[in-house]
Structures are given as structure tokens and as C-alpha cells.
Design a protein around this nucleic acid. Sequence first.
DNA 1: ATACAATATGTACTAATAACACAATAGCTC
DNA 2: GAGCTATTGTGTTATTAGTACATATTGTAT
Lengths: 238, 238
Amino acid sequence: MAQQILKTAAIEKSSHLEYFNIATSVDCVLFGYEQKQLKVLVIKSDLQEFMGLWSLPGDFVRVDEDIDDASYRVLQQRTGLNDVYLEQVHAFGSVNRHPSGRVITIAYYSLIDITNHQLRLTDNELHWHPVFELSKMAFDHKLILDTCLQRLQEKVMEQPVVFNLLPGKFSLRELQDVNEAILGVELDRRNFRKRISLKNWLEDLNEMEEDVPHRPGKLYKLKDELLRHGKKELHEIS
Amino acid sequence: MAQQILKTAAIEKSSHLEYFNIATSVDCVLFGYEQKQLKVLVIKSDLQEFMGLWSLPGDFVRVDEDIDDASYRVLQQRTGLNDVYLEQVHAFGSVNRHPSGRVITIAYYSLIDITNHQLRLTDNELHWHPVFELSKMAFDHKLILDTCLQRLQEKVMEQPVVFNLLPGKFSLRELQDVNEAILGVELDRRNFRKRISLKNWLEDLNEMEEDVPHRPGKLYKLKDELLRHGKKELHEIS
DNA sequence: ATACAATATGTACTAATAACACAATAGCTC
DNA sequence: GAGCTATTGTGTTATTAGTACATATTGTAT
């Protein structure tokens, strides 16, 4: 019957110093929507090992910073935004995933209304790239992107997340286009509208599209109480 | 137009040494089922700060070890098992979650057939505790437990995971009991059986329960091709 | 005025879910 | 072994969600 030896945290830390040898980073999959395409914000890798390849924006987690805060910091740095929905998806921790040493990364995704927010283009190597036109990326970033995309696809018809990709006012056609761009399939218009109206997410603005070369559609907005911004988490809304 | 400076990984590592100051751990929520209750394997905290509180089994990730391997190592250490389904759920990284220093932890859950596998009881402070009778735990382990429980509840009726909690042969009543223990609700027997038969997960063994003080039920097993073990991942089985 | 392009809308079929009741069987007791 | 008890096994109806599919309407452009 082994007698349990109680340790203080301070003693424990000194006995485990060798484990403080792994860095932690966050990587952000920032999705946008433009010209009927789902896009993701990527940046040219600055490592010689990955020269010419795109990578996801990310950074090391600081010792005095929560991991969620680190991802908001990356988001803010790259887009100037700090009030959008950001969701943790998965941690990636293969031993050799990063050539600089042992780095475990935690992946987040977010949805950005490209057209209404200017990027902080610190250099022209940062840009919005069509998601389905990226095959090879630096590090394991293709895997990270695919994992986040899959999560987004699972959520898109179930929870009101996709509205972050759109301006405040939109037509049902625009909403359907976004959904199709994310899912990579075509949807039946009548069934789509029925599903959306069943969800009861939208408020009819009694306004019409303008300057379209055809019969204009009605404009809607997401109900205020369903807006997700900042760190607020809304769970399981139907 | 800032000129991009290419760095080698080696140069980058030396310039970021201050970030290699955060430890990474894994914590495992090992669920079991016994006496119609959902249980979780817990261990008395060995830190003075949390004296008397239960904590989840976990360990630091080693520098030369994948994070998934670390969770399998913890599982093996505590239960002697290495061929069960283990799923990553979430990373927890508040600055002050661990009194020994900055430790980010990655949570996994797994399902164990308690009755058929002896624990490696290195000391008697390790035991199976009813999940719904834990209110306060060491560190943020209550939050981790709740997060993993929620994930399990979401999956249990959709994917064939729960069979890992049961022996190889079981009756439909036993299966229903497990589901009820996980979800914390009562289910209608006829509807439950219909749903299960629709899933087509089970194989009728043409055997009967024995030594029950009532009409015996038929015994079933999970179809071989649906067994999840080791690191194999089966996705989206209906 | 006509052609065009897209909007708006409804019905019939199928699948899944939820509520609900009764006959059959094995062990146990007396 | 008669009767009691506990639990198995099974089916119908009503409701809701999902899928496939066609026609009339409205505004712009020529």
C-alpha cells in the first residue's frame, strides 16, 4: 500500500522542468466569402523549408495569455477584427509537424465578412485564397484547413454561424449561395427556403434588393439575439 | 512594400526560445459503466493545493511523443488497455489553470468495459466514481469532464461508440440501460429498439440471457466491422 | 411589347420520431 | 404445479422533417 507523498505545486514544477520544452501555438482558419467562393486567409510561409507555400496565420501562445486570447490576437493582427465568432476545433501535435522544434498547435476557425472589413495588409503575401484551390500548404496546414472546413460544413445548416460571412442585409439567394459555396453542392431553392424558414433565424426587413438586373428579392437580417460575436458562445440554437 | 526575410527553422527556433516555456499535458476522461451508472476513472490529487479532491488521470506530453500517443500512454498506465477508442475533445489553456506553472492540457475521452478489465491499481486512490456525483474536482477537471460528457452524449445515439462500455454479448435492455445512464433520461423501449434496429449495428447471436429472474432476452453483439479499437477512426457511420 | 432572368410559392411522397398497450415467457413462491 | 412477478417482444397511429418537382410573377433590358 504505497503511501501517497503530497507535493506542493512549486516542488512539482521544479521536478518537471524538462517538460517545459514544447512550444504551443494557435493557427487560425479565417474563412471569407467573395465572388460566390469560400476563401481562406493565407500567408506565404517565411520559412526556407516551406518556401513558396501558403500557411495559415498563427502565432506562439505567450506565457501569460489564454489560448483563446492568443487566437483573438492573431485574428486582430491580421484582420483588425475582434468581435467575431471564433471556435476552437482541434489540437495538432505530431512530433515532427514543425521544423523549428516541438510545437503543438491549436486550431481555430472564424467567419469574416470580407467585403465590409479591410485586411491589415502588412505585406502583399497575405491574401484570400479559394479554399478548394489549395492542395499543398506549409506544415500540416492543409490537414488543419480540412479539419476546420469539415467542422464548418457540419455546422452550417444546423446553427446560425454563416451569417458572419455576409453583410447585415442579404437576400435568400445570397444566403443560399454561401451555403452552397461551403458545402460544395447545389441546393434546391424551395427546400432551402423551407428549411431556413423552419429555423426561424431571420427577420424580414421589408426592403428589396436594388440594382440587380432582374426581379429583386426581399432582404433579411439575422435576428439580433442570434448574433455571435466576441467570445460569447451560443449553444445549440435551433 | 516590406521585403520578406526568409528564415531557416533553426534560426527561428533560437529567436523564439522564450516561447518554449509552456508545458503541455493530456488528461483522459475514461468512462466506464457499472451497476447502471456511468462512471469515470479519477485519482486523488497529489498536489497540496488540491488536497482531498479528485482529478483526472493525465500526464505531461514528452518532447518526442505525439499528443495522441501520450493519451494512449496514460490510458495504458491506468487501465492496462491499449486497444480502445480514444477521442480528442478540446484543449484547455487558461493561464492559471495549473498552479505549478503554465500548463495547457488536451482532453481525450474513452469508453472502457469495466467488468472485463482489471485496473492497474497502483494505489487505492484510483477508482471509478459515478459521473453525476462529482461536483468539485482539482484544477479545471470538472469543466473538462463536463465537456467530454457532452461530447459523448452527442455521439451516443448517432455512432456506435457505446459498445466499448459493454461486454461482447449483451441484451437490448443492457444497451438501453447504458444509453439511459449516459443521457440521464429514460427512453421508450419500443422506440429505442426501433432506432437501434434501423442503425443496423447489431448481429443476433441466437443466444439467450441466463440466470435472470424473469423472461430472458436475446443476446446481440456489435458487428465486427464496426468495432473501434486502437487508433483506427471510423467516420460517420449510420 | 417582348424576351429575359431571377423571385416566390405549394403539393405529394418518403423517412424519422413520439406516444402508446398487450401477449408471451422464465423464475420464484407457496 | 398454480399462480405471481418481472421483464421480453412486438405494431399502429399521428406528427414532424426531408426530398423531389413546376408554374406564375416581377422587374430590367432591348
